[in-house]
Nucleic acid binder design. Structure first.
Lengths: 229, 229
DNA sequence: CGTCCATTTGAGGTGGATCAACCCTAGTGG
DNA sequence: CCACTAGGGTTGATCCACCTCAAATGGACG
């Protein structure tokens, strides 16, 4: 039943990926009981929801990675955020999604109906507080990112990006970026060529090391911080 | 008592502007009873709160205008939002203000203690919902602004700005901008000269008219929309 | 009427975009 | 197991939108 509704309402996909109930709560929202969470998978580049679509579900990345973005009419794209495992995304206070969301690579998400969260928030003050705090966390990120987009140089933007990704997904000092250079450019307000040149320069200065274009090791976080204004 | 605490805690000002109790509720938050609102005035360019300061109060503009901004260490500034009469600002879910706030011109605000709002939110679900919705509204603005800062051209940014201000403060088809060209530039990620040139060009094309540099009449909103991507 | 800023306008410089090869590597099929 | 291919990434050359620096103009206020 829920599975069916997901297949039709979440993205109206022709394919029908395996979806099944999980008894687990929507951990990141709170340990609140009584929420039914479902898992769902998307393939690389598949749309999860579109801009201005009704916001029926709230999502949490289980594995993979997601980009949230807005488009101008001529195709220029601004990625507002990348969502990595454990991140919640798609949470709205209003009726619709403000940004579209796509899987960057094959991705599994856990999701709950927005209406069930709203219901829980109506009876449990802690849930209401948590929903507000999550939106406030997104706002903080957006405010930091406005400073980057409005005022930082290309090298400062790339340095900021590397430190953010290092913090969020480095394992054993190494990070495996899920996204391509174009995605990074569209996140930082740059072209993919400018991103590539900045990374090459950091490499030649010994500040980072590559093991393939998307496997990066930061060799000198301090110097990267200095480059970041 | 509260007056005294405001003088010392809100900005520690040497001057002591007139502050007095108002029986009125904090209208924009909700018609919730039991909240004590106070009025306070700031002179042009006076700081209301600094970046990373504890967020003790929530503010509503009564008259005047406010800029919220972040600074880089070398002084580059990104204004995240302008706050105009009836706007609420300074609302935080966390402990501190993420951006600094300053009066653009002589400004009067109404304010309430954050703790009293939190208390009200704990007992009244409608208040909790409203606080979330206000933060979500700020997030929507920030998301739109990221697209502008990351991907729009100078002319598109200025067109977007004019349409936003027209919507928010036009009276009888005319808008009186409270902020200078530098503020507009720091809001749009441009220099003040680029803003001035764009406005001059729109003027020469008959899209807008001036009555003094800050009194603007939009003569063709449709063409402005077309310039906005 | 004079002073002080805000604004406009001009001239020239530049950081990042654009356009164009080329290269690498992972995946494919022979 | 290797040749082939396609898509992602790198690098080079050139361009241009916007920035910087400079000067003139205008408007508000004493």
């Amino acid at each position: 039943m829920l599975t069916q509704s997901l297949n039709t309402q979440v993205h109206g996909s022709k394919i029908a990926p395996a979806a099944h109930h999980v008894s687990d709560q929507f951990g990141a929202i709170t340990g609140h009981v009584g929420l039914v969470a479902t898992e769902f998978s998307y393939r690389k580049d598949e749309e999860i929801y579109g801009e201005d679509e009704p916001a029926e579900y709230v999502y949490q990345v289980v594995s993979g990675a997601v980009r949230s973005y807005k488009l101008l009419s001529d195709g220029r794209r601004q990625i507002g955020a990348f969502h990595l495992p454990s991140d919640v995304f798609g949470l709205e206070s209003g009726a619709t999604h403000r940004l579209a969301a796509e899987a960057i690579i094959d991705t599994t998400v856990r999701l709950v109906k927005r209406s069930s969260l709203e219901k829980a928030a109506g009876t449990d003050v802690q849930v209401a507080r948590k929903l507000w705090a999550m939106t406030a966390g997104e706002l903080r990120h957006a405010e930091d990112h406005m400073l980057l987009l409005g005022r930082k140089t290309a090298m400062e933007r790339v340095a900021t990006f590397l430190l953010e990704m290092d913090r969020r997904l480095a394992v054993a000092g190494m990070m495996a970026l899920p996204m391509c250079r174009r995605d990074i450019g569209d996140y930082l307000g740059l072209t993919l060529e400018t991103v590539s040149r900045a990374l090459s320069q950091l490499h030649s200065q010994g500040i980072l090391g590559f093991s393939g274009a998307r496997q990066i090791v930061l060799r000198n976080r301090q110097r990267l911080h200095n480059l970041d204004a």
